[in-house]
């Protein structure tokens, strides 16, 4: 099929019950969530395509901290401390 030629499908070789190994095509997953300040991978952020995201609970998609899915925990702490100190000045 024409769609299978596109490289957005991963090719996986699976041995099927009949004994031969056949090529299976799987959609690629979206990129991992990254912290918008320091850029390392965010923990606790669900990584799946839109269909999967739709039927899982909101709390499973990202951590429940402020800036939950956007900043990692240490960057969030720095951001909050800076905000507090800038207000004091």
């Amino acid at each position: 099929m024409k769609a299978r030629r596109s490289r957005s499908y991963r090719r996986i070789r699976i041995r099927v019950p009949s004994g031969e190994t056949r090529l299976f095509y799987k959609k690629r997953k979206p990129h991992k969530a990254k912290c918008s300040i320091c850029g390392d991978v965010l923990k606790g952020v669900f990584r799946g395509n839109v269909a999967e995201m739709r039927n899982i609970a909101k709390t499973k998609k990202r951590p429940e901290r402020p800036y939950g899915g956007a900043l990692c925990s240490s960057c969030m702490r720095k951001a909050i401390v800076e905000k507090v100190r800038s207000e004091l000045k």
Partner: peptide, 10 residues
């Protein structure tokens, strides 16, 4: 003070 970590941060 202001809590800086956890779900009650800020």
């Amino acid at each position: 003070c202001i809590k800086t970590a956890g779900r009650n941060a800020g």
